[in-house]
Write a protein that binds this DNA or RNA. Structure first.
Lengths: 128, 128
DNA sequence: GAAAAAGTACGAACCGATTCGTTGACAAAT
DNA sequence: ATTTGTCAACGAATCGGTTCGTACTTTTTC
């Protein structure tokens, strides 16, 4: 059995994004990355990571003095979890209406539309 | 200029859903609806609605003793706003990757897939 | 007209998330 | 060996959202 994905908060998600990007990282690493975009203290990031360990969102390797953190769940399942949540809260659970809304409102280029359509075709072949 | 949609919190969104559904409603109406799904106090709903008036999420007609509340923004722009937020937070701003993720992970029936595809076709004709 | 019901307003408690200062351990540099 | 720097740990303050009790006003009912 795989542990079902935990719903990360906004701050936690920001950290997860860094970890998905960089792979296993120290607090310093994560902080450096995050601090490029906005003002944030080192200990803030540390605290968040500690909380995330408790929640099971990340794992920690304590063998070195500088602990090394790693995302415990992949990007895809996390995205799926957040999407599902939004679907339930704002789209009455309907994936279709969510997707349609996304397509109507988001400025999507022609190339991207084709990619989506191609994917849709594949999906329908696979599940007839 | 149209007022840009305000990001509602979870509780506020639940109330908006009721208002979109029922149209203009009193606190009692909203509370009755909400209370079907979960335990929630009457004054809790009242307070939330008052806050929402301040935020501009709903309008209030005070001419009757029982004030009548109405959603100030439509469902579509609100959904778009929430979608945009999630897109930025978890999909690096890419509508395409959000849509693909939704399609892969959500159990979408064949009929729905066709509807999406049809819509996609129309979209591409419209914007060549 | 008095009592009960229905309504609004508001303060306060609470909770999770976020933030950071401070402390103490350890290591590196001088 | 002393100083300087790096690190984890933790407590505390803060903030937005949610919840509800209480107080007060206006109707309705008997």
């Amino acid at each position: 059995m795989t542990t079902d994905p935990v719903r990360p908060s906004d701050g936690e998600l920001a950290i997860l994004r860094v970890l998905w990007d960089r792979g296993p990282s120290t607090v310093r690493d994560v902080h450096a990355d995050l601090a490029k975009g906005r003002d944030i203290g080192y200990t803030t990031v540390l605290k968040l990571l500690q909380i995330m360990v408790d929640k099971g969102l990340v794992t920690r390797d304590e063998s070195a003095r500088s602990h090394v953190y790693q995302a415990a769940q992949g990007e895809a399942p996390t995205q799926a979890c957040l999407l599902r949540e939004l679907m339930d809260k704002a789209f009455e659970g309907s994936a279709k209406s969510l997707v349609l809304r996304a397509l109507t409102e988001a400025p999507t280029g022609a190339a991207e539309l084709e990619e989506i359509q191609a994917f849709l075709d594949r999906l329908r072949k696979g599940r007839p």
